[in-house]
């Protein structure tokens, strides 16, 4: 597998008025082309910070982050869909194009194609408020994919949805990501979600976080929903649960 991203002993300390906060102590792992990594850790351990570091929104205090491709594009997806309510779905997915000044016919038609392909074509002229939570999250993913990013960074993208919707959107998102052949890092506190999606799971410690364990997950080429039925699933859950709480 081709290595796409590598973190080498990354550490981050940030300053506040009253304190010096050690958020990340020592992070090393790699992301291969087409791989899906789930990062789990106790709440408040600095999972979101890791994504900000990788996306280049923060500079690490120590260590290095290598990206194999020069000018690699990152696609960042957050907990809530963050669609702009005053824009139609179509205009929402054009937002990254506008920002990168690539709002030409070619890029637009690529984004529109994604919208069509993933079943939101007929809603392109609708406003986000007219869509269900699951559809909105799908629209948010398409916005993330609109610039054809090399690496997807997902920050608990399903946790704002109710349980039923979460399962189906999770399936949905998995299919889209695999279909588009994207490499992905997902941070979550939901162990089942991590197992049902990932090729590799990274378990973090309490803050300041370091990598406690790295596990390869091989439950066959199944969808997230099918994985949840797999006999190994429960064992993994138990194992990870223990590791998180030890």
């Amino acid at each position: 597998m081709e290595k796409l991203l590598e973190l080498k002993h990354v550490a981050l300390t940030y300053q506040t008025k009253t304190d010096e906060v050690k958020a990340v102590k020592d992070l090393s792992f790699t992301l291969d082309q087409g791989e899906f990594i789930s990062v789990i850790g106790p709440s408040g351990c600095g999972k979101t910070t890791i994504l900000s570091l990788i996306a280049g929104l923060m500079k690490p205090t120590h260590g290095e982050i290598f990206v194999a491709k020069a000018n690699a594009q990152f696609g960042y997806m957050l907990q809530k869909d963050q669609l702009f309510p005053w824009r139609t779905i179509e205009k929402n997915i054009y937002l990254p194009l506008e920002i990168k000044k690539k709002c030409d016919a070619e890029h637009k038609s690529y984004a529109l194609e994604l919208l069509q392909k993933y079943g939101l074509g007929e809603f392109r002229k609708n406003y986000p408020s007219q869509l269900s939570g699951g559809m909105r999250q799908r629209a948010a993913l398409i916005r993330t994919l609109a610039l054809n990013p090399d690496i997807l960074l997902l920050d608990e993208p399903f946790s704002a949805l109710d349980y039923q919707t979460r399962l189906s959107v999770c399936d949905d998102v998995y299919h889209i990501i695999k279909h588009e052949g994207k490499s992905t890092i997902l941070v979550t506190h939901d162990i089942s979600e991590a197992i049902s999606l990932a090729d590799k799971i990274i378990v973090l410690s309490q803050r300041p976080c370091f990598v406690k364990y790295i596990h390869k997950i091989d439950l066959g080429g199944r969808t997230p929903l099918e994985r949840r039925e797999h006999p190994e699933f429960g064992k993994w859950f138990e194992k990870l649960w223990k590791e998180l709480n030890e």
């Binding site: 900000s52 996306a55 929104l57 990152f74 960042y76 957050l78 907990q79 809530k80 963050q82 702009f84 937002l95 990254p96 920002i99 990168k100 610039l147 960074l153």
Partner: peptide, 14 residues
């Protein structure tokens, strides 16, 4: 203005 929306814009390189 929603901090997460600003974060989203920044992640797009705005």
């Amino acid at each position: 203005t929603d901090k997460d929306k600003i974060l989203l814009m920044r992640s797009m390189g705005a």
